[in-house]
């Protein structure tokens, strides 16, 4: 069950894969030879105890960190040496675990910057920004999707924690990526805010061409959304398979859920 799952990349569909991906910080191996392929239309949850290397694995894929060894392949191209900006332009979207916004710009401006990035409007200097109605229209649509339209003119720093999480996700949506990488999107959110985000992720699954990766601690969320679960433990990929099967496996019971499986499965 562990290790790479069998696949044959078709040239037409989105395909993301890591081969022996490894990063060392001094003597510590944070991600250790992880080989894994992700298929479109599939939501893969990445679980594991704190410090297992989940966020580091994400950083290696989206380019915030450079691998010590191994490769990141996307649609047949080797991205391993590309900076984060060029990976984003190729379609890798990322929402960060620790909220990572432009704090003194408004909610609308945060989203509009993401729209602008993905539309390739990087160096236009002589037109007035507020006159680009095409960018504004698209940004407004995204604001609606993450239920932030009424907060459009508020500075990002002034939002509640839950709204900042939504904005974080909204910026990724605005990029219209081929790969969505959610890093604990619901962490710290109040109970009544969570469904908005879960519905949103569920609706992304309907577009069968997208790859969705989700790091999440809440097992009920994982169970309700994931098509597949991979388990990282001490930087190694220790389990990979259908949710029911992975959660029931002895290695997960021991490595991740510890001695109290009943507690983790309580929803």
């Amino acid at each position: 069950m562990a290790g790479s799952s069998g696949h044959s990349p078709s040239s037409m569909t989105t395909h993301l894969e890591t081969r022996d991906l490894t990063i060392r910080f001094g003597g510590h191996v944070a991600v250790d030879s992880v080989t894994c392929a992700f298929r479109p239309g599939e939501l893969t949850a990445i679980v594991g105890p704190n410090g297992a290397g989940k966020t580091t694995y994400f950083n290696l894929i989206s380019g915030q960190l450079r691998a010590s060894a191994g490769k990141v392949l996307f649609n047949g191209e080797d991205l391993t040496r590309l900076p984060a900006s060029l990976r984003a332009r190729r379609g890798l979207g990322r929402a960060f675990q620790l909220t990572n916004l432009f704090p003194n710009l408004t909610v609308g401006e945060n989203i509009r910057l993401a729209v602008q990035a993905t539309r390739g409007v990087h160096y236009e200097m002589l037109r007035v920004w507020s006159g680009r109605s095409d960018l504004i229209t698209r940004a407004d649509a995204v604001l609606g999707e993450v239920a932030l339209a009424p907060r459009r003119n508020v500075a990002a720093a002034a939002l509640s924690h839950g709204d900042q999480r939504k904005l974080e996700v909204g910026m990724m949506l605005a990029l219209e990526p081929a790969v969505f990488m959610f890093d604990e999107p619901t962490a710290g959110m109040s109970v009544d805010e969570v469904p908005v985000l879960l519905d949103l992720i569920a609706s992304l699954k309907r577009d069968r061409s997208k790859i969705i990766l989700l790091v999440e601690h809440k097992m009920d969320v994982v169970r309700s959304l994931a098509d597949r679960i991979i388990v990282l433990h001490n930087g190694r990929l220790v389990a990979d398979g259908a949710p029911a099967e992975v959660i029931a496996s002895p290695i997960v019971q021991e490595a991740y859920l510890g001695a109290a499986p009943g507690k983790a499965s309580a929803a």
Partner: peptide, 25 residues
């Protein structure tokens, strides 16, 4: 006040995030 200028503000605010959106800072 152009799209370019707004990216400059974004870089001032959070270069890490501007890079992650695809801007070559």
């Amino acid at each position: 006040n152009s799209p370019f200028g707004r990216v400059l503000l974004a870089i001032r605010e959070n270069p890490f995030r501007a890079e992650a959106l695809g801007y070559r800072i």
